[in-house]
Design a protein around this nucleic acid. Sequence first.
DNA 1: CCCTATTGCATAGATTGCTAAGTATTATCG
DNA 2: CGATAATACTTAGCAATCTATGCAATAGGG
Lengths: 160, 160
Amino acid sequence: MPPRRSPKAKQNQRAVAFPPRLSSGYLVRDAHRAFQRLLERRIATYGVTRGQWYFLRVLWTADGLSQRELSARVGMMEPTTAVALRSMERSRLIRRLRAEDDRRKVRVFLTAKAKRLRDELLMVARGITAHAEQGIGARDLANFRQVIARMTANLDRIAY
Amino acid sequence: MPPRRSPKAKQNQRAVAFPPRLSSGYLVRDAHRAFQRLLERRIATYGVTRGQWYFLRVLWTADGLSQRELSARVGMMEPTTAVALRSMERSRLIRRLRAEDDRRKVRVFLTAKAKRLRDELLMVARGITAHAEQGIGARDLANFRQVIARMTANLDRIAY
DNA sequence: CCCTATTGCATAGATTGCTAAGTATTATCG
DNA sequence: CGATAATACTTAGCAATCTATGCAATAGGG
């Protein structure tokens, strides 16, 4: 049984309190969802979904990667990649070609359509970032980036 | 890695560049996934999923809410709430009772089992936060919280 | 009182993510 | 060479989200 602190605290056993406002995890989650919602709405105009976006972003700088490499760079598991690429193929954003040298591999290539979208969509991303960062000083922003990257690294170091 | 300096970058039209390392959105996304992965693993031990967690957290401080109120407090859409609550009912974490006064409403009540989990699970959350924040100074942390909250607010103000 | 609008919730279908297990191709070792 | 292992991807199944839509109970206006 959980220990009670106050003999009076009936419903509100405040022995362990942890208000979301103080939880970095909650703050990060809220921000993440705000970013996502906006990104989703904006790129929908171009017929691109969020899941496709992450892959486009990598492919714009490195066309012809294998699915495994893509997964690694985007930071997703391979089945997630497979699903996203299937939808991108349907939308005529990519073509998938079996590699000549190793027929297990599939190389992913952008179509002309996807290449044409590049600059405009990157502008969209920058616009969102600019909105998000409004009114935040350069020094605070630099500190923010350093802190959140450190948190991610801290968490990634933990197996369980 | 990716960024090239070469003036004659062939395929690499660098007119619009926007490396993820500089994108607050990407940093937030990475951190969010790191938090989630760890949380998921840790609470799985208790038979609780991430989706259930958010609702437990609210219910631990305010038992007996209606589903609409719960949705608002957790910050999710009602269908999401409905799905999560159904799974929580199956797991014997909550009971749902039709409100006497207004039979459209459903009140959600924690079971004894869910109440017993409270302190231990909140400790899990604090442990994760502590891990994440290791090696980050109090001042930097305070700045971080302010900045990320501001970003969320900035983004939430935008309709499209 | 009835008709209609509002409210509270559920269902349907799509997207994004995961783990676990299967298939096909290539590499390796005895 | 042939069995086995490793590699690259796919399929299956689940969870957590969303939007759009439907249904049932209540409230309000004439």
